[in-house]
Design a protein around this nucleic acid. Sequence first.
DNA 1: GAGCACTGC
Length: 734
Amino acid sequence: MVSPPVTIQKQAHLQGCRKLPSRGGLCQLLQVLSCIPNNYLLLFPSLSVFFQNYSYPLILCRPGILFSVEKRLVEEVKSNDTLIVVGETGSGKTTQLPQFLFDAGFCHDGKTIGITQPRRVAAVTVARRVAEECGVGLGRKVGYSIRFDDTTSSSTRIKYMTDGLLLREALLDPYLSRYSVLIVDEAHERTVHTDVLLGLLKDVQKARLRSSTGKESEEKNPDSNIEKNLQLSTLKPWQGRNIHPLKLIIMSASLDARVFSEYFGGARAVHIQGRQHPVEILYTRHPQTDYLESVLVTIFQIHLNESPGDILVFLTGQEEIESVERSVQDQMRQLPEGSRNILTCPIFSSLPSEQQMRVFAATPAGFRKVILATNIAETSVTIPGIKYVIDPGFVKARSYDPNKGMESLIIILTSKAQALQRSGRAGRESPGKCFRLYPEGEFEKLEESTKPEIKRCNLSNVILQLKALGVDDVIGFDFIEKPSRLAIVKSLEHLFLLGALTDECKLSNPVGHQMSRLPLDPMYSKALIQASNFNCLDEMLITVAMLSVESIFYSPREKSEEAKTAMKCFASPEGDHITLINVFRVANEFLEKRRTVTNKERDEKIMRKWCKQNFVNSRSLRHAHDIYRQIQGHAEQMGLRFASCGDDFLQFRRCLAASFFLNAALRQPEGIYRALASGQVVRIHPSSVLNQTKADCVIFNELVQTSQKYIHNVSIIDYLWLTELAPQFYTMPN
DNA sequence: GAGCACTGC
């Protein structure tokens, strides 16, 4: 039986932002928008009603007049060193602006325009599209560069890349001298990389301005980290020559633009109208006690009462998705035969790619697709055909407690910005509806935007990077939003204990410098450097590669027994680390035996089949191979001594103890464990091969609180190794 | 005997 419908209260909102003012003129203009040619964007003053809080000027032009945005934007970039571009979805800012700037001569003297994206897939797809629009092959004038995949050449002038990659480039070229313009796209997402990049670019811009004018700029900053770094560094090839000033463009969604403008000293902001279809927002009249039940009711309410169009439901995790999917199937059977035309499609990141692809397939005629998704559908993938969005208003969020050194993964309320982003998914192809499963009053109480990642993650990697960039005073670094002092101090302490920092808090030589060059978690970098002393570099290379990817084993709920049996073939009694090495090696041997020289596609197919049979996630394994190869290259460059310990894993486990000593745990009488560094009571996660074994002392890689405090990736060590191999942290009791 | 949103070098 379908439960009685949730009462839905109607609200007239445009994209949930502010109530749409009843102005005939504005509505007419919105209609005009749909027939504007690609290289024209509309800017008009009526929109300022949506931005009443803004103190900085918007570009205004007379309403109703189409304005060549190209000319106007280029002028703005020429007259402002930093520009904030508020671009709505569908405004074409990411694809068009770099082309405008190229045509306006910003690539003279072989300079490049760089555009950063938080996600790999965005960098690739946008670059492809722009190359096509320019009528050139990818890698000529237009290219992209992401980890493991660089299509740029010496002739590339418009370069799309991930923000993390640009940060790495800054380690090699602190002035970022090849770029005349850098565009930071999707800045409002506030990933760690974006935040660090913004602080860095602000500094680079100042330093370049000073170098190019040959005198101190007005905003004199004798403490500029870049300057200090350059003073310390060896002569750069461009020294003595003028460096062009750096133009910075920060592109952001509307709600957060003011933060960026203020951060860049009141930088000018311009607004570009998008071409999103209107989305009607509906709220429930009362708070819902069981949101999964409300989801079900709403799905069927839409299915039975609304016009055709697919439904996108935002849920928090795999378990919720699988449970809702079963319930939809069950309830559908009770509908009249003519209404049983629902097709459910789950999508979440750990779902194998082939199954993910189902959401992109065209909906068969006469059917309605119900997509049950995690946050993956919020920004990472765009699913066509969505007309209805159901948003219960929850998200599973990761946060980090620097004091306990523990991550937690808990379900929290979404932010307003997130709710807005979700509802926007209903208006990409036609007008749509978004059903928020909470009352409107609750929406008003939500946080404006999601807490920036930098305030809720382990900062060790960020601090190490900053140190490598020459930022000595990390606590004083000009973050757009400062992480807590405690979090920074804890990370400094952590890096010191790993030997990356000296007593004076400087990068140590060579260990600290080596660690900062490796694209790994600092603890894994340390393990790698240690490994050549323990004659197990090859084993450790495999281990850190396997630990750096999403979970290697895939176990769908309905086949959990089979999956467990498959895993036993690889299991080592000594722990998860050696188990991971076994998977990597067995997969490699299997492929070596069947590898063909000519048919790469066939090889991949064979590998996918092997993965499926062994309940291994093929995407993760492929990713681990890529990382392995990349890190192997680094290890060679660093001159680390290559060696394998063969079947004698004792040295390898000693190396684990020497590297992960901060993550050691001792068995307690009741069978639980106590983490030595923080004193917390923890349990071995049930997915570990050591679950239900009785090892006295273990090391682990992650401590995550979900329903309990679980340690993941666990291996057995000898307690005495800790005092022997990490005396800086453990001393023998007298 | 539990279950893990997403991204990146």
